[in-house]
Amino acid sequence: MVTIRRMEKLIGYVLLAGVLTSAAIVLFGGALYMWRHGSTPVHYRIFRGEPSDLRSLAGIWKDFTEGSGRGAIQFGLMLLVGIQVIRVALTGVLFLLNRDKVFVVITFLVLAMLSYALFFAGE
């Protein structure tokens, strides 16, 4: 039996660890980018859309492992999005441990809708 207070604390710590990791990766990628391209001016007045490698998970992973600064930032951002899924899943598991049936169903419905929107609605 996990009390609701302990659940909240646990989710809070997991969230904190996740967001700190993601911020560290974004900072690292940003530093790398500024070091290499810091003197190139950036313009965002006209919308061109991102290059295709920065628009898909596979492309971001490839750029990240090849040591691209922008790839690393984008990877950090995707981690931040992933943490949102993880925290809902963790909440569901904790409700499950509590045998809190109604909230297990509610939380997993939220998880299902979140996953659907995240992975399928964009196609």
């Binding site: 990628g29 940003g30 628009r55 898909s56 922008r70 929107a117 964009g122």
Partner: peptide, 14 residues
């Protein structure tokens, strides 16, 4: 997912 897919998320800006 939709934002990323349509190229709205720019790393240097974000």
């Amino acid at each position: 997912g939709i934002y990323l897919h349509h190229g709205y998320i720019d790393p240097v800006l974000a």
